[in-house]
Deep mutational scan, measured.
Amino acid sequence: MPSETPQAEVGPTGCPHRSGPHSAKGSLEKGSPEDKEAKEPLWIRPDAPSRCTWQLGRPASESPHHHTAPAKSPKILPDILKKIGDTPMVRINKIGKKFGLKCELLAKCEFFNAGGSVKDRISLRMIEDAERDGTLKPGDTIIEPTSGNTGIGLALAAAVRGYRCIIVMPEKMSSEKVDVLRALGAEIVRTPTNARFDSPESHVGVAWRLKNEIPNSHILDQYRNASNPLAHYDTTADEILQQCDGKLDMLVASVGTGGTITGIARKLKEKCPGCRIIGVDPEGSILAEPEELNQTEQTTYEVEGIGYDFIPTVLDRTVVDKWFKSNDEEAFTFARMLIAQEGLLCGGSAGSTVAVAVKAAQELQEGQRCVVILPDSVRNYMTKFLSDRWMLQKGFLKEEDLTEKKPWWWHLRVQELGLSAPLTVLPTITCGHTIEILREKGFDQAPVVDEAGVILGMVTLGNMLSSLLAGKVQPSDQVGKVIYKQFKQIRLTDTLGRLSHILEMDHFALVV
């Protein structure tokens, strides 16, 4: 994948999101292997301009796509893939009243899908469409860049269908997702969380590099694949309309690839034109409109599966009536509230959605109805927002919020430890010299600072030695090549209790 991002070429006709291997024109390309080798690009942008032909009021008969309808489940399912879809609609009884809503608040519980998330729908649909058009064949390999849930859905379907599955996901995604993927037989590649989507090191860039190296491999490409919004247009939206008897006044959905909100909203605009569509985008993402909503100094966020630093091709923002931004604290607070007060075992993005819903639905009156999409299960986040310690460490809970008995030293300040200034190293000294210094002084790690004293990161003896043994660096290389740029900081005025929580999850903390 090139470091400079080429513009994806656009073909003359058809839909841009065809499933299957992508040609340089962004659509299915038939021909000899030699032709494909000559024409197939190194990668295709996940934010390529959409060429979708959908228009409100256009006859369904003019759609270029294969459409399906929700099917009634048999008493005995032939395999677990038949437990994807037909998820329950559940009334939220307490939270709406707590925040003064007059309307009825309903939750579409997508964590009841077989793999635990709304992404099971698009995973199965992308595979079925690729099999139907002859792209996927027995023994082929599926590769997908994902925040985890699409990966789980694909790995689940691949396990049943017999495909090899490789999932490329950023490091910030939970260990629970990784464990589930491994249990399903998927191979996992992790990428830096802070890598831009168009960087060769991003999950998108690495996935395309693997595709170019592995024979008979395919990126189904949830960011561009029409099967993504079509899955929701054909099934999720129809289920909502049936469950609500066609009567709903507002739908609120958090947005990642945009397939969920695009597919549902398009069908609702056709069948229930008075329904307002509300999009939820986390602070630090750029999906919301108008652009002024996205202006923030924050560039990272903890909530998973929603928000991006690019506009995915499948996201149709014209069908969203209003956007709201959400933050991590309210997302996790509301997710825990949904679990504790409503018994809905949902993930953090569901918290984002409901946090926005109780604001947006203030305009609705008694007798009206708001539906929220709860995308995934708490299963993926047992060591994250479900953990009091994690919430404390991230600053989303305060010590006084917890009532468990603490040891005698818990409320003492870090400054009472009488710490001395640490050994520091410059980023320009060599790895070999740094190892000598650390061994001589008896230290395992040291902060790396520039000549102005600005902290650049941390270097550890173990990481340097393993990097040297693996051949990633040489003793003569500058130590700046092996620094940890993500590390926890703590102030002298913070409590030892807070430091204790940090050290339970990290090997060190830097006192500043």
Rank of each mutant, 00 (worst) to 15 (best):
residue 72 K to R: 12
residue 237 A to T: 12
residue 238 D to R: 12
residue 48 A to F: 09
residue 56 L to P: 10
residue 220 L to Y: 03
residue 48 A to G: 13
residue 216 N to W: 05
residue 226 A to G: 06
residue 41 P to K: 11
residue 46 P to L: 03
residue 161 R to E: 06
residue 198 D to F: 06
residue 249 D to W: 03
residue 222 Q to A: 01
residue 171 E to K: 09
residue 71 A to I: 14
residue 267 K to W: 06
residue 94 K to A: 09
residue 219 I to V: 07
residue 109 C to Q: 08
residue 113 N to Y: 01
residue 126 M to Y: 06
residue 206 V to C: 09
residue 131 E to S: 14
residue 13 T to G: 11
residue 37 E to Y: 15
residue 266 R to M: 05
residue 117 S to W: 03
residue 82 K to F: 11
residue 219 I to H: 04
residue 2 P to S: 15
residue 74 P to H: 07
residue 228 N to D: 02
residue 144 E to P: 02
residue 135 T to N: 13
residue 33 P to R: 12
residue 213 E to H: 06
residue 127 I to P: 06
residue 107 A to T: 07
residue 21 P to T: 15
residue 38 A to V: 13
residue 51 R to F: 07
residue 67 H to Q: 09
residue 199 S to N: 09
residue 215 P to M: 08
residue 61 S to K: 06
residue 234 D to Q: 05
residue 267 K to F: 12
residue 214 I to T: 03
residue 45 R to W: 06
residue 12 P to T: 10
residue 100 G to Y: 03
residue 190 R to E: 02
residue 73 S to A: 13
residue 150 T to R: 00
residue 95 I to P: 00
residue 172 K to C: 00
residue 60 A to I: 11
residue 120 D to G: 06
residue 85 G to P: 01
residue 241 L to K: 06
residue 259 G to K: 02
residue 157 A to S: 14
residue 5 T to R: 10
residue 151 G to D: 01
residue 122 I to M: 06
residue 21 P to Y: 03
residue 25 K to N: 15
residue 145 P to C: 04
residue 272 C to N: 05
residue 169 M to K: 07
residue 180 V to M: 08
residue 149 N to E: 03
residue 210 L to E: 01
residue 51 R to M: 06
residue 9 E to F: 10
residue 169 M to A: 06
residue 47 D to W: 01
residue 143 I to P: 00
residue 59 P to E: 11
residue 234 D to W: 03
residue 104 E to P: 05
residue 208 W to F: 07
residue 41 P to C: 12
residue 130 A to F: 03
residue 213 E to N: 13
residue 208 W to Q: 11
residue 130 A to S: 09
residue 232 H to Q: 01
residue 27 S to P: 08
residue 93 N to V: 04
residue 60 A to W: 11
residue 24 A to K: 05
residue 153 G to T: 02
residue 202 S to P: 04
residue 229 P to Q: 01
residue 174 S to K: 02
residue 263 G to F: 00
residue 210 L to A: 04
residue 110 E to R: 03
residue 183 A to K: 02
residue 116 G to H: 13
residue 243 Q to I: 06
residue 255 V to D: 02
residue 193 T to R: 09
residue 115 G to D: 08
residue 195 A to S: 05
residue 226 A to N: 10
residue 5 T to G: 09
residue 242 Q to M: 14
residue 9 E to A: 15
residue 216 N to C: 14
residue 217 S to I: 02
residue 90 V to G: 01
residue 22 H to T: 09
residue 272 C to P: 09
residue 183 A to L: 03
residue 121 R to V: 00
residue 86 D to I: 09
residue 273 P to Y: 02
residue 134 G to I: 04
residue 170 P to W: 01
residue 104 E to D: 14
residue 126 M to C: 06
residue 242 Q to C: 15
residue 45 R to I: 09
residue 24 A to S: 14
residue 227 S to W: 05
residue 123 S to K: 07
residue 269 K to R: 12
residue 212 N to L: 14
residue 2 P to I: 14
residue 225 N to S: 05
residue 51 R to T: 08
residue 66 H to S: 10
residue 30 K to F: 05
residue 255 V to C: 12
residue 240 I to A: 01
residue 173 M to I: 10
residue 98 K to C: 05
residue 61 S to R: 14
residue 44 I to A: 13
residue 275 C to D: 01
residue 270 E to Y: 05
residue 37 E to G: 12
residue 50 S to E: 07
residue 181 L to M: 06
residue 176 E to L: 08
residue 235 T to D: 07
residue 213 E to V: 11
residue 269 K to Q: 08
residue 25 K to I: 13
residue 251 L to P: 00
residue 50 S to D: 07
residue 111 F to E: 04
residue 91 R to L: 05
residue 23 S to L: 03
residue 171 E to R: 05
residue 211 K to G: 06
residue 132 R to H: 11
residue 206 V to P: 04
residue 211 K to F: 08
residue 122 I to T: 01
residue 59 P to S: 14
residue 237 A to L: 03
residue 98 K to H: 11
residue 36 K to T: 08
residue 46 P to D: 04
residue 216 N to L: 06
residue 32 S to R: 11
residue 4 E to R: 05
residue 141 T to E: 06
residue 94 K to L: 12
residue 136 L to R: 00
residue 55 Q to F: 06
residue 201 E to Y: 09
residue 11 G to E: 10
residue 223 Y to M: 04
residue 104 E to A: 12
